[in-house]
Design a protein around this nucleic acid. Structure first.
Lengths: 239, 239
DNA sequence: ATTTGTTATTATGTATAACATAATACAAAT
DNA sequence: ATTTGTATTATGTTATACATAATAACAAAT
């Protein structure tokens, strides 16, 4: 029997919240760059008129997202935040929403389809040689061990990301992979046997398209290769 | 004249580091789910034999990455971490490495090229109507104001992401956009006049491909549309 | 009977003081 | 000249105390 007063509650920012903002401003306003030192905890505390406790918690937040680094017992300096690092903990927590998990599943497909141009622009002969070795292993390894199969699958696609030359993309995909596997196994309908509309494009064929510098065929082949996954998320869309 | 003793330094994890891990373990081992309450600060402090200060800093980290939420003066509960949220602060800090910035620039192109399949699977007539309105505005707005042009450009491509139906992708792209603009303007060589190898594909044409359900033409057109950007990152690759 | 006021309890927010420990610079010793 | 000792400094950690908001239980008022 709650009455909806339709009035927005006033947001009481905590001291730490405010201090965090102030320190961020301080860094920006002083045009500080990576490597530059920032004032000591006590200096901040005195300047802002709050206790060291509050300062420490605000600094702790900045440290958590990676924009400052503390040299123990020495001081703090600005540092390059790691774009990817925080994802790891988030993903590792197993607390993401189901919808987000599915979004991530799609994201991985999107990335792989979208990197084709860059992949072809940057692939080297050395890359292709390595990739061929992976494919060879996949074919020789007919032991049907599901674990090995998956391992090789990951190696193949992982190599593609590596070949893109985009480290952030590569790390991002590495992070997405476990989510992909998880959603694949637990969150999507009608898991296995999938009927391909056409012939299934093998890893060997994909490799050959790369070697022949045939981007069109590769794109089509990759699309075909990923079709079962893609279809599952698209089926969902229709229902 | 450093002597290399060939002995690995012992990693001195701070108490907070350890406590953070312990609390993470606690959550996992007890199979706690979103919405579940976690013990009070004092209970943690007592159980782990450390001061409340340390507990608070560890909890602060978990709060920063979004896996717990504290109801002031009441207690803490597990919450869905926001996959994107942490990026905002990182990007806003202006402290990312140049290489990461360029990676992100590419990432945005990759996303846009890669989402075509999903885009076509999910687009609705309503979407197309909205998109058409945007294109109409773009064409009528011949005031040549760079600001307006950019605004419309953003609206058009933003709408494409919205049409993908993938909220995470959409938010991700929104985050990437300012980086994209920044790199576009400050970090890449030979900025403007770009000679298209073929005829430039306009927004109107892209819209029509969508309406005609012509995915092939759209893909090609989008590739052409993004060519100047793509070429710039690929030029870089060769040098 | 419902609302309002009172009170006690609890948990987080904040402040303060103190000590531990590692990094650094510099003096002292050999 | 290199090593060793020492003072200083800044962060890491603990302990204690109080402020404040949420909650519940119950009394008082209409």
């Amino acid at each position: 029997m709650k009455k909806d007063l339709n009035i927005t509650p006033l947001n009481t920012l905590s001291l730490v919240d405010k201090v965090e903002m102030r320190i961020n401003e301080y860094i920006k306003n002083n045009n500080l760059e990576v490597g530059d030192a920032i004032p000591k905890e006590l200096q901040f505390a005195e300047a802002l008129g709050v206790s060291r406790t509050v300062i420490r918690e605000a600094l702790s937040r900045l440290r958590t997202i990676g924009i400052i680094e503390t040299k123990k017992h020495k001081g703090m300096v600005l540092s390059h935040p790691d774009f990817i690092q925080n994802f790891e903990k988030v993903i590792d927590s197993n607390l993401l929403e189901d919808e987000t998990l599915k979004d991530i599943f799609e994201l991985r497909l999107i990335l792989e389809m979208g990197m084709v141009d860059i992949l072809f622009a940057r692939k080297t002969d050395e890359d292709l040689k390595e990739l061929e070795e992976i494919v060879n292993r996949m074919e020789s390894n007919n032991s049907e061990s599901t674990v090995f199969k998956l391992e090789n699958e990951v190696a193949f696609h992982g190599k593609l990301y590596e070949m893109s030359g985009n480290k952030t993309l590569q790390r991002f995909q590495n992070l997405l992979l476990p989510v992909f596997q998880y959603v694949h196994e637990h969150k999507l309908p009608n898991a296995e046997p999938f009927k391909y509309s056409k012939k299934f494009t093998t890893h060997r064929e994909l490799l050959n398209f790369l070697k022949d510098d045939n981007i069109k065929a590769f794109r089509k082949g990759l699309s075909n290769h990923l079709e079962p996954h893609l279809n599952r998320v698209l089926e969902k869309a229709k229902s």
